[in-house]
Simulated assay, not measured.
Amino acid sequence: MVETLPLFPLNTLLVPEATLPLQIFEQRYLRLIKQCLRSQQGFGIVPIRDGGEVGAPAMIYQVGVLAHISDWNQGSNGLLHIKVVGSRKFRVLSTQVEDDQLMTAEVEYLPEEDPLDIPDQFSGLQQLLEELQEHPQVAALELPLAHTASELGWLLILLLPLTRSEQVDMLAQNDPIERLQHIAELVDRLSSDPE
């Protein structure tokens, strides 16, 4: 099913079930947030391939995540502070830019991943995630716990030192076990590379 979504390009990645705090100050995004709050609809967060978050529309990757606003307030600095939660993954089919530079896209949702248990062979990755989540900067992100193979993979692609294109490629995968296998290979490579 194809749907039209307003897009919010970011220099960060949102994955399903994770939360992300945002500060909104540009008019195009204030309009977007007001519209989403009024209609109780979500918007798409897509990672930036080239360009910036502010000003002219950026070049984006073709995979993103539907975001729903879970909380919002007006900050003392006058900026709108929102917190979003990631839900469904989508592929961008085409984009348009509105008069105020807000980007919208025709998107197609990627298949939902089966909530598979984490296989025993990936218990090392589960332990790695738990160790990473104990770090104060990671703890501040308030990431959810990983109960399924999909959740473990999504959280690790956020936290491991991957390039943006590697993150997007792994996010786009629909087989959670295959994703964990790729992550395990990457961790092996990272741990065996001399400094």
Rank of each mutant, 00 (worst) to 15 (best):
V2R: 13
E3F: 10
E3N: 06
T4G: 04
L5S: 03
P6G: 12
P6A: 12
L7A: 04
L7C: 03
P9D: 08
L10C: 10
N11P: 14
N11M: 12
T12P: 12
T12R: 15
L14Y: 12
P16T: 11
T19K: 11
P21Q: 06
L22N: 03
R28G: 08
R31M: 11
L32K: 02
I33T: 14
I33V: 15
K34L: 05
R38L: 10
R38Q: 15
Q40Y: 01
Q41T: 13
Q41P: 02
F43S: 03
G44F: 08
I45G: 01
P47H: 05
D50K: 15
D50H: 14
D50W: 11
E53C: 03
V54I: 14
G55T: 10
A56F: 04
P57A: 10
A58R: 05
I60R: 00
Y61L: 05
Q62C: 00
A67W: 02
A67P: 01
I69G: 02
I69A: 00
I69P: 02
S70E: 10
N73T: 09
S76F: 07
G78T: 07
L80K: 01
K83G: 00
V85T: 13
G86Y: 06
R88K: 15
F90E: 01
R91Y: 00
T95M: 11
T104M: 06
T104I: 12
T104S: 12
T104N: 12
A105G: 12
E106G: 04
E108L: 09
E108M: 12
E108V: 06
Y109C: 01
L110Y: 05
L110Q: 08
P111L: 08
E113Y: 04
P115W: 03
D117K: 11
I118W: 07
I118P: 04
P119V: 06
P119I: 04
D120I: 11
Q121G: 04
Q121N: 06
Q121Y: 10
Q121H: 14
F122L: 01
S123T: 14
L125N: 06
L129G: 00
E131Q: 15
H135I: 09
Q137T: 11
V138T: 03
A139I: 01
L145A: 13
H147L: 13
T148I: 04
A149Q: 06
L156W: 06
I157V: 12
L160M: 05
L160A: 04
P161F: 15
L162T: 08
T163S: 15
S165C: 09
S165D: 14
E166V: 08
Q167L: 07
Q167K: 08
D169W: 01
L171T: 09
A172I: 00
Q173D: 14
Q173P: 00
N174E: 08
D175Q: 13
D175S: 02
P176I: 04
P176V: 05
P176N: 06
I177V: 13
R179C: 05
R179E: 02
H182T: 11
H182D: 09
D188I: 03
L190I: 13
S192F: 08
D193K: 13
D193Q: 13
